[in-house]
Amino acid sequence: MTLSKIWVFAESTESGITSTSLELISAASKFADHVEVFVASPEPGYSEIVGAYGATKLIQVTDVNDRLIGTVVASAMAQLLSGNTVDAIFFAMTPEGRDCAARLSVKLDVPVLTNVVNLSVDGTRLVSEHAIFGGSEIVQAGFTGSSPAIFAIRAKSFTAESRGGMPAEVVQVGVGDLGSAGKARIVEQHLEERSGPKLDEAPVVVSGGRGLGQAENYKLVEELAKLLGGAPGASRAIVDAGWVPYSYQVGQTGKTVKPNVYIACGISGATQHMVGMKGAKNIIAINKDEDAPIFSIADLGIVGDVHKIVPKLIEALQSRT
């Protein structure tokens, strides 16, 4: 293998290690002999799953408590790095991943390459690819300084593949006091419940944008998604407006989705939106403006009014069942 060791910051929820984290572990195990995974949870079962995807070691940071995960894990990594040679560290482009990468970058005085969508080997180093200008151009970049190279990677850039590996060896570490930087505390967590398939895993995604006119009309999007066995999503415009929670947002700052079918209702197709859904196999767009940028990537573009088309579509689908 090209590299000796890669670290991965894996994130977990109540339902286990996130799919994005498994993608990163899979990718790392293609490039390095040793893949060591950090999690901010003492959950014992994770050594099996991360091992199956290619990790050799699981480093559990046990004293996160009510502190912000990124700050704590960055300190754990910095502490363990002395006396350890690590070629690269992978983070997901999530709130926690960015926090952790940013703090670590300062501690090590190494920059971060962010928004990575692909990695490949160039001699003895990893080089990264970045989609810019809404994905119309691809920039290839690499580090010239000392290791470790820090990459923050977008979701769905790699496929998560179990290689049937053995459970990873488990090591537990605590970081202790973090001084001033560790003073932020989580006092309450709010989970936004949603039913149906998960937005980033659903085979069909129906998203709504400002063209829906008002918050009540979002139920058209929900209804259509439900009839197609899919998940409802949104542009940032209607998340900012408070119509739907942030967890519905598709795009640069939200979820990356790669469904079989993506239906954009009243969405203009800003570069930051497209970057999150361009990978869909089939794209249907409904927009009353024939010049809307979303049509440039649509397989089926309908110039028309969402308020007229979507209700008829819903009715037609209902009458089929």
Partner: peptide
Amino acid sequence: NQEIITVRSAEERSSGVIITDEGDA
């Protein structure tokens, strides 16, 4: 500490059909 190695155009999505709704879209 970092460099840009190359820049290239991404593969274009081939554009599909665009129709104007006449009531039966």
